[in-house]
């Protein structure tokens, strides 16, 4: 259902042993699609930006030509906090930042830090 309604790319969390769990994401980019990527890999606690998984770095190492647009989604946590399966209809906002580029051979930590601060800059107030 998630694939049909949101046109989502699902990552199999246990696929690491069999192949590349990010393969569906590579395929989407290769097909010329825009990919919305959640670097925390899960829903946060609504207060702090959680640690980034390394997926976004793997993705860009393979496709350094891809443009990265940092986005901050505000208030979504309160719409459906972790552990609930029904939403409440609160207002959310999205802020978009300037395009970021992955620099060739950029170490993982440096890139993730750069992406992280670009996202935090978009946080309202």
């Amino acid at each position: 259902m998630i694939e049909d309604v949101f046109n989502a790319v699902l990552v199999d969390r246990g696929a690491g042993v069999h192949g590349n769990p990010l393969q569906p994401a590579f395929d989407a980019i290769a097909a010329g699609q825009s990919l919305i990527f959640f670097p925390e890999g899960t829903r946060g606690d609504g207060e702090t930006l959680g640690p980034f998984k390394s997926g976004v770095h793997h993705l860009l190492k393979a496709r350094p030509d891809a443009e990265v647009v940092p986005v901050w989604i505000d208030n979504a946590y309160r719409v459906m906090p972790k552990g609930f399966f029904f939403p409440v209809p609160l207002l959310c906002s999205m802020s978009f930042g300037a395009v970021l580029r992955y620099e060739v051979q950029e170490p993982k930590e440096a890139f993730l830090d750069r992406l992280r601060s670009a996202m935090l800059e978009l946080r309202p107030q």
Partner: peptide, 21 residues
Amino acid sequence: REFITQTPVRRADHVALFVSF
């Protein structure tokens, strides 16, 4: 909806909010 967006409700208020709405 507009009002609650501006209040400091927390995760623990989720059921109460759902019931309100």
